[in-house]
Design a protein around this nucleic acid. Sequence first.
DNA 1: AGCGACCACATACCGGGTATACATATCCCC
DNA 2: GGGGATATGTATACCCGGTATGTGGTCGCT
Lengths: 208, 208
Amino acid sequence: MSVKHALLALLEQEPMYGYQLRAEFEQRTGTTWPLNVGQVYTTLSRLERDGLAQGGGEDTEGHVIYRITDAGRDEVATWFTTPVARTQPPRDELAIKLALAVTVPGVDVATVIQQQRSATMAALQDYTRLKRQATGTARAELAWSLVLDSLVFAAEAEVRWLDHCEARLRRAAAELDVQNSRLTDGTSSVKREFRRSTGETHADRTRR
Amino acid sequence: MSVKHALLALLEQEPMYGYQLRAEFEQRTGTTWPLNVGQVYTTLSRLERDGLAQGGGEDTEGHVIYRITDAGRDEVATWFTTPVARTQPPRDELAIKLALAVTVPGVDVATVIQQQRSATMAALQDYTRLKRQATGTARAELAWSLVLDSLVFAAEAEVRWLDHCEARLRRAAAELDVQNSRLTDGTSSVKREFRRSTGETHADRTRR
DNA sequence: AGCGACCACATACCGGGTATACATATCCCC
DNA sequence: GGGGATATGTATACCCGGTATGTGGTCGCT
């Protein structure tokens, strides 16, 4: 949903055509998330379908110009005033991977963690190198710089989390070994135990 | 791609049927990311199409059992040994939102930041409340606990980043005001300046 | 004239994700 | 014991995000 609202926000500033929207989006985010032109056009047609934008008029050079509607302006306003929901965070590939690595036997979790930390720290190096280039004071430069900072903060948190995981796994190693033998001789009993222990039903889960 | 590999990893442990795969996945992640059953079946059919898993046999109760293939085992192994790429990070809605809020005139950035911080800190409260419930020592409990920690670390980093943004915006306020007048009287010149300054071409961007 | 780049728009296609249909089985309760 | 709510289990339709590709036009270069 972020691309849809971002395009709307750009259209609120000024009517634009598709190609221009992509350029403006990438300028502001420093091409951190390159935006495929095709997605711009499909998104625009959906915006038009939903009555949030309206395209058709041509400018002096024959471009198909899209302009925001009143409903679209409302949508942008609520987007900016409503915080992004943290109740259903997007799937985190790394967290899923580690959760599986811990629970599936025969996976060398320590190595997984170490390799990931190396990769993330390498990414951090790239970010700090890029930061040296983003020293302008223009609004777009500032925005890009903030986006970069967000990547840095996220990567640093990831490294800290990996360290934390290592520590917890080391600490729990002894207990886990005990638990281990209980797990291996009866997988189905474990499963039943899980189902019984969570009062939650299938319908509860599908309903939300 | 994370769901696909997660299901494969579960199948490596033991042949399973669709419904069971969902239960196992949610047990390990503590229903942090509820998994729609439909996605399990579509993913399984894609896995079968790609030769990574193979289903058809029925168990004693008539369930459609899927089992991993050798190619699937290879896929899981490479998944666990290859770190998740940070070169093209997934789109961060909040970062995009702030980048737009900063560059589009007429948006109260300070309020956006404050409201987001409140929401994120509320989420943090929920996480710590949940953490008190996850005190078991079983493998699945440990995995869920680690997933929760990852959410906590990410949320904390987000709050820190928001503080950081506030500070930078305050510091740059004076310069921005100067820049402001230059921006408002010639948007197209800014655009041209951007295009000229980045040596990168459209083809470069689409090619990668 | 021909080649290659860039600009601009449009569409096909795929995978992730949700909602829903449909069929059994179980359980509770009047 | 019949019936409604609930749970299990599989399958499919649909939408959206995202990528790749097709088509046509302009400009500059050799």
